[in-house]
Write a protein that binds this DNA or RNA. Sequence first.
RNA 1: UGGCCUAUGGUGUAACUGGCAACACAUUGGUUUUUGGUACCAAAGAGUCUAGGUUCGAUCCCUAGUGGGCCAACCA
Length: 669
Amino acid sequence: MSEETKSLNFIEHIIEEDLANGLSKDKLRFRFPPEPNGYLHIGHTKAIGISFGLGERYQAPVNLRFDDTNPAKEEQEYVDAIKRDIEWLGYKWANEFYSSDYFHTLYNWAVQLIKDGKAYIDSQSSEAMSEQKGTPTQPGVNGPYRNRSVEENLYLFEGMKRGEFDEGTHILRAKIDMQHPNMLMRDPIMYRILKKEHHRTGDEWCIYPMYDWTHGESDYIEQISHSLCSLEFKPHRELYDWFKDNVYGYAAQELPMPPKQREFARLNLSYTIMSKRKLLKLVQNNIVSGWDDPRMPTISGLRRRGYTPNSIRHFIERVGVAKRENVIDVSLLEFCIREDLNKIAPRVMAVLDPVKLVITNYPEDKEEWLDAENNQEDESAGFRKVPFSKELYIERADFKEEASNKFFRLKLGSEVRLKNAYIIKGESVVKDNNGHITEIHCTYSTDTEKKVKGTLHWVSVKHAIKAEVREYDRLFIDEAPDAHPEKDFMEFINPNSLKTIEAFVEPSLLDVTIGDQFQFQRLGYFNVDDDTTSEHLVFNKTVGLRDSWAKQKPKAQQNNNENKPQQQQQKRPAIEVIKQLGKKYTNQPEAKQEKSKAEILKLAETVSYDDLQPLFNTAAKKVGTRIATLITLSVLLKNGQERNEDINTFIEKALDDKNDLLVAEAKIL
RNA sequence: UGGCCUAUGGUGUAACUGGCAACACAUUGGUUUUUGGUACCAAAGAGUCUAGGUUCGAUCCCUAGUGGGCCAACCA
């Protein structure tokens, strides 16, 4: 198990430290706590990978706990989908739990808190309460019901539970501190009245506990050692701990271990969105065909698209775990799926954009069944037969009447190999009235030992089977569709994310089952879609092959999204940029220095003396920063800044320096 | 007019927790190849946001600044 010391992420460091400090290894216990209000997506796989991965690493149990405290949003359908997805990823949970299992315990503890004067019933409107709550920059004030007697609180809480009050009339709040700098600590709500049927408890309850109250205590009840969640819950930790500390006294005997919450940065993928709410909108507005549309970043979408559990797990490993905001490039995901499929997907031939190829010296009625290797990466995959005849389909893009010798494919007068078959030579073309090529004529030679530069895939016209191929592009045209405060993410939907193609495939594919995966040679990886019937084959393009030829040609279509870095630079104050340029200045070659200097001169125009003044104290050894300061100063002086004592001493000190560049700049002044 | 988190190549994560930065993806060359795929080799790319401090020495510790993120749902 323990190979060379693999580097640990910060969570593993924490666990190792806890272990070193005496936590027994058999006390380790984790959990994955989804709310059953939507489908799991690629972002969740990070959380799943972390907690279940830790479980595997330390051989500790991992609970699957559905955080089902809001009957208005949650459904059994989602529970089932979530379980299916986690299983599919290959993870095993120790226990399947529900927060709703703990409603009674939670209720009893809440009563205890009331008795201890740590919770009270508030009976105001939500507007009134939110007003008293203050803002992040302003403290809140106490509400009029804050000091109700224990008896009254108890009486009302019981009434709430019995259904004697309407929704919105009373709530239970923890009594903490309305002036607390953390808004979550300003008497957070613990229970609200919700007269809704719950997918598990039915109509047993009409009050439901809130997240903060439920989640932490559920961890505690399950004796979770490390409760891991994403960064936006960091401010909740203080409340998590408050509840935990206060409840601990009620149950320390049976439940000795208080859990520990730690937070990591969630996964973001470029050109996609991760919010369940927004994904739901795509489904509801029929932008996609459903939660499992192959364009969706949901696990079910990825599965249908042809992603394998293996590839996703590798992806999550490579993405790493840390606490800073991150955006993962989709190319990493694509790399992971190619890596996996390359090893396991059988190769076949399919033509997506056909043009007819006639082999003029091949007998009219002849047909041959040639051997084709199923997968050169896997010897055990064996061979199959593919039919060859006089008329074939090849890709339109594989032919040009004439082209430079960087074009390895078929052109008139030169030779190319047909994969698994013969060598052919382009002879002539047949065109329609519009000059559109309808047929390519060629001759073949049986000497297959010949060295030729290109190899084409093909399908025999007579034997070809029709198939529908669905080719997908990213769902959004913007790198971060939901990161624009002014614009709705729906504005960035890519209208061309789905392309449906009538393709021809080799006859061996007549006999496939849903989910089968193939490499269409030279094109990419494809799988058999759920929509496939015995008469109608449907393939999804999972991902294309890497294509270093395609990279060479399209220079025309790279236009729009090259403005991110510039924006960032604009946002930084000029003086900050100058400092940075200065720091590197002395390490740069002369030409680059010139450029830096020009940039500093430009930026200096917008710098005020007050911004610059602190830099006069720069340590003597930081020559670059002092040079940048001098350059900036020269601009200020030119623009009418008067010389003063600070300026003069700074210049004098520079004149005294050993560094020639610095002295030179100082002399100018 | 606040609090908390965060800052390492284009991207993501490391750096035995103080000894001059590694791995993966992406990029660019090359070798092999009946997939312009795969595999293999190589190159380029950051001196760790800025300033000050502690130290013989800081990516790592302290302070401040700057940038980014989060926090005012009877959501989770």
